[in-house]
Amino acid sequence: MLKISKRLMGIFEQIGNGHRVADIGSDHALLPVYLIQSGKSPFVIAGELNPGPLAAARKQVRDAGLSSRIDVREGNGLSVLSAGEVDAITIAGMGGGLIRDILEEGLRQGKLEGVTELVLQPNVGEDLVRRWLVKENWYLTGEQIIEEDGKTYEILHAVRSDRAKELNDELYNPDRIQLNDGGKLSQEWLYTLGPWLVSEPVEVWKKKWESELCKLEKICIKLSESDAAESREKEAAFREEIRQIREVLDCLPTAKR
């Protein structure tokens, strides 16, 4: 049986049993092959736009003897799908803005018809994905953060629900998270930090945000070397962001391992 990375395993674990899956931006089709070999999915569409990975995906599927159950298709985003073909869609390894745009375009084209589950792994801009899910009445049922080869990845699992608005209002309610100092997290910070991740912070999550603080500090140092008024304003804004993140990290319950 094929071996897959910790990141792909995290995505695999979020997909519902028996679902027909479309893996968008499938690269070498490792996840589709594993889904079939494991018995979790009966049929997978592997969508890929770039010629190199597309050829690699076709070879991977052919070598695994799974050409009848994995359809490798060339195309951009959800254009590779027809309405009602799959139950679940996975999109991983892209920026949050691109994932949002792919979903939005697919929605306009009717490609999300029949889809009941989304498993999304943005490399950056996770808040953009969370906002889109709320806007389009998808409920974020859970979040996972993992570390592999020195990088952290957030995996978001969302489902269609008739109660999506009610559930999302509760999930992003600032009153839901109580900080140790008695304060509350704003809705904006819940979108940024992750409403589930911040509820039970783990060490990997805290490590990610400590790293973000270091990056912001370096930006501030660079900006401080400039005499331009615009640089002063940007530095002040970043300093305030650093202060707010630090305040949240210091006031959250102790991170779990």
Rank of each mutant, 00 (worst) to 15 (best):
G97I: 06
G97N: 09
G97A: 12
L98I: 11
L98Q: 10
L98K: 08
L98M: 09
L98R: 04
I99E: 03
I99D: 10
I99R: 01
D101V: 01
D101S: 12
L103N: 02
L103Q: 06
L103H: 05
L103C: 05
E104L: 14
E104K: 05
E104V: 02
E105S: 01
E105F: 03
E105I: 11
L107P: 02
R108T: 13
R108V: 07
R108Y: 12
Q109K: 15
Q109L: 11
Q109M: 12
Q109W: 07
G110D: 01
G110H: 12
K111M: 13
K111W: 07
L112S: 10
L112H: 02
E113D: 14
E113K: 14
G114K: 05
V115K: 06
T116M: 00
T116W: 02
E117L: 00
E117F: 00
E117Y: 02
L118E: 00
L118P: 05
V119T: 03
V119I: 13
V119Q: 05
V119H: 02
L120Q: 00
L120A: 07
L120D: 03
L120H: 03
Q121H: 07
Q121C: 14
P122N: 09
P122E: 11
P122F: 06
P122I: 05
P122D: 06
N123E: 15
N123Q: 15
N123K: 14
N123C: 10
V124M: 10
V124N: 12
G125M: 04
G125K: 10
G125E: 11
E126L: 13
D127P: 02
D127Q: 15
L128R: 15
L128G: 01
L128N: 06
L128H: 10
L128T: 11
V129W: 04
V129K: 08
R130Y: 07
R131C: 11
W132R: 09
W132A: 13
L133K: 05
V134K: 12
K135Q: 14
K135W: 01
E136Q: 14
N137T: 09
N137C: 09
N137M: 04
W138Y: 12
W138I: 06
W138H: 09
W138E: 10
Y139G: 06
L140A: 07
L140P: 02
L140Q: 09
L140E: 00
L140T: 10
T141M: 09
T141D: 11
T141Q: 14
G142P: 00
E143G: 13
E143N: 10
E143W: 10
Q144S: 14
Q144C: 08
I145H: 02
I146V: 15
I146S: 02
I146R: 03
I146H: 04
I146W: 08
E147F: 13
D149R: 15
D149E: 15
D149G: 09
D149Q: 15
K151F: 15
K151P: 04
K151H: 15
T152P: 03
